[in-house]
Structure formats: structure tokens, C-alpha cells
Design a protein around this nucleic acid. Structure first.
Lengths: 216, 216
DNA sequence: TACAATACTGAACATATATTCAGTATTATA
DNA sequence: TATAATACTGAATATATGTTCAGTATTGTA
């Protein structure tokens, strides 16, 4: 209405206007991400087409490619988003456990439930194992795997420092722990909630007994 | 040369002729299976096209469909062939080990090496996790998984009978053992021979300590 | 030799599906 | 208000690829 107002407030108005575009972008990006996540979870990576996402979001194919580099990029975004979410949730949850042993049981429980409510894991497996990916994507995946291993390694190291476990090869066991969770995840798809929880707990029982301090 | 000879020998000649066709079929089927196995192992399931197999074998697309129902059927054939091979090899190997503990270490070692030399596992994972499969195929896969679990269950049960382990939930542990091997398999793809062997051995160390009889 | 069954060919079919791009609409800037 | 930047459209592109089928060649049968 009054253009002098615009100038008098200056930067603030500009920021507001810029934000309106940023806001729109964020909103659209989120809408695409949410639909895509749900579809990937239901149908898997390959089986979910851009067309599917177009139908689910109501926005055009071109718009998806405006916000994401390509299908791979969209999926990577979801994976990284998921990792961020995990870090956040875990950081809050971790404090509730006193010992590393308790933390590991807590992690197992969370994984059991997260995987059931969050079947993106299935699509992730498909994506990780699919051999037709760009080198940069391969690299990004390697980093993610390294991150998971490192997470376990640090957890186990703290357990050693607190005299809970007796471990010589920490990295090796970090890999084994990840492998155990990874393998169980596949089996948990054929289980209901209670079975999955029991399986993860049992796995952790065995793992912990396997690395427990021995009484000589 | 002499048509009377044909008649005088009778059934034998007939069989010989029938065999010539059967022989041809077997030979072609094997050629296709071998090429396909190698391609699936290199490129993965989805990434290997019928066209690829056509080029590798030198026979036509139609011929592949003459011998196998479709691409899924061809892959299932390879999986079942692999299972048969495993059963045979294991049956021979198993006798060399006295205790179940030794058998489990033997199994781990074999899996570590087999998976390296036999990267069909990667394609198998892709295939198992792919959600676009016919119901009958799904069923066949479920049976295979059941078979793997049952194999472990029997192995563990024998260990219990011989007082080697202390296990309450045999089936649960059979699943965990399979999951452990499955998860390790994924990681072993990023390892060389020695690393993989060490990882599998360490995993079995932990697993066995985790289910060992306790001294009270 | 005539007929039947089996083994095989390869082009055509059907279709799915990631990606681009010329153009339009909306919003920011001066 | 004019220009630039950003957000978006949707049809066209490009192409890959599983599967079929009419027809041919080889082998078995009587």
C-alpha cells in the first residue's frame, strides 16, 4: 500500500519477502520428501517411480527435479534425514541409561521398534546393495556405513573404559554388532512387534555374554 | 547305415536318440545358467538384462525363455542350485569336525570364503529384498529362509545334546546366528579375504562365548 | 520317407520410467 | 512499474528391457 513504508523498514521487509520464497521451497521439499519416504517404504526404491511421487504430491515431475538432483539424490536426502533424526532421538534417549550395557539394550529395543515403524530400512537395503549407483553416491554410502561402525565403536569403548566388557578388537566387534543388527533387521520383517523385540533382546544377551568380563 | 540294426536293438537305440536331445537341453541350460550366474554376480539381479545373457551365451532370447520360465525363474534356479551345492559340500566337510563348536567355526570359515568367491549373495540379497516378486516366488524364498534357520537349529540342538551349549530358545538363537552371518556378509564385501575370515571368526567367538555353558 | 516332437531364432511388442526443457507463474528488487 | 530471480508445469525425450510368437532347424518315431 505505502511504498515508503517498505523503504523505511528496509532490510526487514526484504527478509520477509525472501523468507516467503524460502518458506515455499521448504514446504514443497518437505511435501515431496514425506510422500517419497512413505512410497519408498511401502514399495521399495526401484519400484517407486517419479510418477508415483508426482501423483502422491500433486506437483509436477519437473518440480521434483527442481528441488532434488535426481531420484538417487532424493533417496540420499531421506537417508540423511533419517540419520539426523536418529542422532537426535538417541542423544535424548542415551541419557536415560546408566551403563553401556543398558545403552546397548536400549539401542536394540529402539532398532527393533524403529525398523518396524520405519520400513525405509528395506528400501535402504535395496539401495545399498544395488550396483547401479554413481561413484559419489557409493562414496556417500561408504561414509554412512563408517558412521554406523564408529557409533558402535565409541559405545563399546566407553563400556571398556568403565570395565563393563573385555574386548581386544574394538573395531572388529563394532562391525560384528552392526552386522548382527543388520541381519536381524532382515529377519524382523517376518516378525510381529513382540517377536522382533524378543529377537533383538536375545541377540543382545548373547552379544553381551560374549564380550563380558570373565571370572577366572 | 543299416535300418534293421535300429529295429533289432530297439529300445536302446531309441534311448540313445532321446538322450541326444536331453543332452542338448542340459548342455544349453547349463550354458545359460553359468553365464547368468556370472553376470548376476558381477552386476546384480536387476542390472543384468536378458540381452546381457544373450550376448554372453550366444543363444537367443527366445531360447532362454524356452528353458526357463522367466528371469525370476532363472534366478531361482541358480539359488536352488547353489543350495544343492552347499548341502553337498557341507555334508562332506561336516565329518571333519568332532564337536559342534568346531562345526560352527568351520561353517563361519566356509561362509567367509564362499561369499568372497561367490558374490551371487549380493544379487540374492537384492532379489530377496526386492518387493516386486510373484507370490509363488515369495513363497519359495520363505521356504529357503526357513531351511537356513532349520539348518542352524539342528546344528545348535546337537550342540545342546552334547552338552556344549546352554540354550533355552533354540529357534531364537538359530535366527540370530543366521542374522549374524547375513549381516556380516554385507560387511565382508568391503573386506579382503583375511579381514573377512577374521571377522567371521571373531563373530563366532562372541556367539559361542555368548551361549557357552556357565560355571557357577 | 512322412509325421511329430523338440530345440531354437530374432524381430516385434509392450511398457515402464528417469530425465530434460521450453515456457509460464509467482515473487523479489531497484 | 520494469526487470530479475525463483518456483513450477507437463509434455516430449530417450531408452531400456522383459516377454512373446510366428516361423525354422534339428532330431525322434513309425
Amino acid at each position: 500500500m505505502d511504498f515508503h513504508l517498505k523503504e523505511s523498514i528496509g532490510q526487514k521487509v526484504v527478509n520477509f519477502c525472501v523468507n516467503k520464497k524460502k518458506q515455499q521451497t521448504e514446504q514443497t521439499k518437505k511435501k515431496i520428501a514425506d510422500s517419497a519416504r512413505s512410497l519408498f517404504a511401502q514399495k521399495g526404491y526401484k519400484a517407486t517411480s517419479i510418477e508415483d511421487i508426482v501423483k502422491a504430491t500433486g506437483c509436477s515431475a519437473g518440480n521434483i527435479y527442481y528441488h532434488f538432483k535426481n531420484k538417487e539424490g532424493l533417496f540420499l536426502y531421506l537417508l540423511e534425514d533419517w540419520n539426523r533424526e536418529w542422532d537426535k532421538t538417541w542423544l535424548a534417549k542415551e541419557k536415560l541409561y546408566a551403563t553401556t550395557t543398558e545403552k546397548l539394550y536400549g539401542m536394540a529395543e529402539y532398532l527393533a521398534l524403529d525398523q518396524l515403524s520405519h520400513p525405509l530400512t528395506k528400501a535402504a537395503d535395496e539401495f545399498f546393495n544395488n550396483s547401479e549407483k554413481a561413484p559419489e553416491v557409493e562414496e556417500r554410502i561408504n561414509e554412512m556405513v563408517k558412521g554406523y561402525i564408529d557409533f558402535n565403536r565409541q559405545l563399546l569403548q566407553r563400556g571398556i573404559d568403565h570395565d563393563e566388557f573385555e574386548i581386544a578388537n574394538v573395531t572388529g566387534l563394532a562391525i560384528i554388532l552392526d552386522g548382527l543388527m543388520l541381519g536381524l533387521n532382515q529377519h524382523s520383517r517376518r516378525m510381529d512387534r513382540e517377536e522382533a523385540l524378543a529377537a533383538y533382546r536375545l541377540a543382545m544377551d548373547v552379544f553381551l555374554l560374549g564380550i563380558a568380563k570373565r571370572t577366572r
